[in-house]
């Protein structure tokens, strides 16, 4: 089953009155349920922009071309209101960013519980879920630490705990290992891989690291605002009906 289905996704940023940047120039993409997909490509090729659209942080541009389509689990989400998109982000998606993006004043467990809170789970239940998620990333003993008291790798694991505490259908990670050394990088990747395998969570991650890409099920390659290669095995060539001579 296709969980995320995008057609004609475009995004143009307006820099000033006259100049615009076409970051995404018409992208068609399918993400299958339970897949772990890497998006790779040169800097500025539109990877993050695509992630923001898939993650409902931005809506695709509706004008200057064929109408964009975006379906989440079959449901049309291309033109939802901000409130509806926020709700989907809170309950059905988990985000991991390159620079961790934890709230600096909150402890690890509070950061994770915040995501529960936004998804409608509060108080004791939220704390319990947060602690469990921290346990899954191996940081139960750091629950009371502030981000500034944690290493980069630990911060990113807290962010992963936050991304999966609500058991979302999809985890979107924009260069999750970009700021980590290769050892921490491998840890984080292993965690994502584990949740993908054990809990069937769909993972879409952007990376510049070929090793990370290689660990995924599929690599989508982008260049200049378009998908150059969606990493699916080329479709089986359609067999022409063979006219084998009937043995006499």
């Amino acid at each position: 089953m296709t969980i995320l289905e995008g057609r004609n996704l475009r995004k143009t940023y307006r820099l000033s009155k006259r100049s615009t940047v076409a970051a995404l120039k018409g992208v068609d993409i399918d993400i299958e349920n339970g897949e772990m997909v890497a998006i790779m490509g040169p800097s500025g090729s539109g990877k993050s922009t695509l992630m923001h659209i898939l993650g409902m942080l931005h809506a695709p541009d509706p004008n200057h071309g064929p109408a964009p389509e975006l379906r989440l689990g079959g449901e049309d989400v291309a033109a939802l209101s901000d409130t509806a998109r926020t709700r989907i982000r809170a309950r059905r998606m988990g985000f991991v960013f390159q620079d961790f993006n934890l709230v600096p004043t909150l402890t690890a467990i509070e950061n994770v519980a915040l995501a529960c809170d936004y998804a409608g789970v509060k108080g004791k239940a939220a704390r319990a879920a947060a602690l469990e998620a921290l346990g899954l990333v191996g940081l139960a003993d750091r629950a009371g630490h502030k981000p500034s008291e944690l290493s980069g790798g630990e911060q990113q694991r807290v962010a992963i705990a936050r991304a999966l505490v609500n058991k979302p259908e999809i985890i979107l990670a924009d260069e999750p290992t970009g700021n980590l050394d290769s050892e921490r990088s491998a840890e984080v990747l292993a965690l994502l891989r584990q949740f993908n395998r054990e809990h069937g969570q769909t993972v879409v991650l952007v990376t510049h690291d070929a090793e990370v890409g290689a660990a995924c099920d599929r690599i989508v390659r982008m260049r200049d605002g378009r998908i150059r290669d969606d990493g699916r095995r080329p479709a089986e060539p359609v067999m022409a009906p063979q006219l084998t001579p009937v043995p006499a």
Partner: peptide
């Protein structure tokens, strides 16, 4: 600003 961005990204509504 950044913190508000994080909160909005992970699902805080405008009202929140």
């Amino acid at each position: 600003t950044r913190e508000i961005g994080i909160k909005r990204a992970i699902g805080a509504s405008r009202w929140r």
